[in-house]
Design a protein around this nucleic acid. Structure first.
Length: 506
DNA sequence: GGATCCGTTGTAGCT
DNA sequence: AAGCTACAACGGATC
């Protein structure tokens, strides 16, 4: 009698409902299914895959040290892997946590439950709140005041489950962890942003380190818009805990519990900008993702206007240049190159590149950008990624007004808050501009020819000229967006006339 | 049911 | 230097 404990987005021993439930089993098989269809270099970048493998390695080590158990990692289709384990008699039972909203995972678990009726699917520990309970309180909020109100109704999140004291013996299985090479990755990037390494061990130690930063006053004072996107090393501007939370190395409830302790010791910032606000945004994204289901990542939908994004060969070229950091706008290019190299960029850099790709400059479909983020971000999360691309491209009810476009050339007053007078961020990620005077670093096309020559910069050759002219393009795009919106409204009105129309007609 | 309020993060130009 | 305004104007929640 062996119970498989299927690890999914909970790569940890703390706050793990499945592992906790397995404490009563006769024998267990800790299991992770690595779907090779998921982990391809095209869909999941090497850095993100590396973080996963490190997390699995750490989980295996923790299981062995704490319980004398080992993690059985199988590279293959999860459904088939589990079916085979049952068929061979390796396992007789399975326990796992349900997914909160990602459609492919929800579909997968439905197939598993159908094929193995004895399986136990437990409520997820992925969020602060039980998602089903949260959704009984009405439609999920789309703005932070609504989320704060909902949190008030739901009360304090449950305390994180402690790691089990003991576990039953592990089934005797030999297993070796896959490597990036064995999964078909050839460009192996070793250094993530700020050296974040996957796994519960480094995740929990990073959590404690960040909560203890400046004796807790840093976490209490934290306000995201005040941090700068021109960051890549040294003290991180944000906690950089998001990759750990995304893969479940650190549970949101554990994060919340530690944060509450720090908050208890003094005055602290409030949502939306505070650290708690960040956990609330994550919660809100998942609630909305669950509520809208598979349409959440589509256009058009109940939460996505039908905008006529460019989709011709020219647009494909612009997308490619954006993806590779060759737009000719150093801020955009530095951020996109950092994303590839480090698997992380600051929140405001995400705003800058997302606005630039979509409504601001290139007028490319937000789904294209979303897929690039999904590939490269260590903290990629289906609900959060879609929520934010819907927001930044201007199509969602929770979007900022579409005509508020970020300037890709940082200024002192810009809300992108770049604050990089020496242009060090550009130097680090766009080294071909290194010799330029600092004042031209973010707009090399404005530099006098003598400066360009001195720096060895040949615009259009060693570094691209601006792909589009921001001032004229953003104006045109705003007009196009407005027109698309007007058409959509008209179509809606024609389908279901409202009293407004009658009034207008009278 | 209509009016009003407000939303984590716009920019440029002015005082 | 912080704070105002013009630009052009969405849509959900609330009263």
């Amino acid at each position: 009698m062996t119970t498989a404990v299927w690890f999914r987005k909970n790569l940890r021993v703390h706050d793990n409902a499945a592992l906790t439930a397995a404490a009563d089993a006769k024998q267990i098989l800790p299991l992770f299914c690595l779907d090779p269809a998921w982990a391809t270099p095209v869909t999941v970048g090497p850095n993100r895959c590396r973080f996963l493998l490190e997390s699995l390695e750490d989980l295996d080590a923790t299981l062995e040290a704490k319980y004398g158990a080992r993690l059985h990692v199988v590279v293959g289709d999860p459904e088939q892997t589990i079916a085979k384990l049952f068929k061979e008699g390796t396992v007789t039972d399975i326990v796992f946590e349900g997914e909160v909203c990602e459609p492919r995972e929800l579909e997968l678990e439905q197939r598993i439950m159908k094929a193995h009726p004895q399986a136990t699917m437990l409520p997820s520990t992925h969020l602060l709140y039980d998602i089903d309970e949260a959704l009984t309180k009405g439609n999920p909020p789309t703005k932070m005041p609504g989320m704060v109100k909902l949190a008030g109704k739901l009360g304090a999140p449950a305390k994180p489950l402690p790691a089990p004291a003991t576990l039953p013996p592990t089934a005797p299985v030999t297993c070796t962890l896959p490597t990036l090479q064995s999964l078909g990755y050839d460009s192996i990037i070793k250094d993530a942003a700020y050296g974040v390494k996957g796994g519960e061990t480094s995740g929990l130690s990073r959590l404690r380190e960040q909560m203890g930063r400046e004796n807790g006053s840093w976490a209490r004072a934290f306000e995201k818009p005040k941090t700068t996107p021109a960051s890549w090393a040294g003290d991180s501007p944000t906690t950089l805990l998001s990759p750990y939370v995304a893969f479940g190395c650190v549970s949101a409830r554990m994060f919340y519990a530690e944060l509450k302790q720090v908050y208890a010791k003094g005055a602290h910032a409030q949502p939306p900008t505070s650290l708690l606000g960040q956990l609330y945004f994550r919660e809100m994204s998942s609630l909305l993702g669950r509520f809208h289901g598979a349409s959440f990542d589509q256009q058009p939908s109940a939460v996505c206007k039908d905008i006529d994004w460019d989709a011709d060969a020219e647009a494909a070229k612009r997308l490619h240049a954006w993806d590779e950091g060759r737009t000719g706008y150093p801020l955009i290019d530095a951020a996109m190159r950092q994303l590839r190299e480090q698997g992380w960029i600051h929140h405001l850099a995400r705003h800058a590149v997302a606005c630039f790709l979509t409504r601001g400059d290139l007028y490319v479909h937000w789904q294209r950008g979303r897929d690039v983020f999904d590939r490269d971000l260590l903290d990629a999360d289906w609900a959060i990624n879609n929520f934010n691309w819907l927001a930044l491209s201007g199509v969602a009810p929770w979007s900022p007004p579409f005509f508020r476009v970020y300037n890709p050339v940082p200024t002192v007053t810009s809300s992108l808050n770049v604050r990089d007078p020496q242009g060090l961020y550009v130097d680090r990620f766009v080294p071909e501009l290194k010799g330029l005077p600092a004042k031209h670093k973010y707009a090399p096309w404005l530099a006098p020819l003598s400066d360009l020559n001195k720096a060895g910069v040949k615009l259009g050759v060693s570094y691209p000229r601006p792909l589009v002219d921001h001032k004229t393009r953003s104006k045109e795009n705003i007009a196009r967006f407005k027109e698309a919106q007007r058409r959509a409204k008209e179509a809606k009105e024609a389908a279901a006339p409202s009293s407004k129309k009658r009034k207008a007609g009278a």
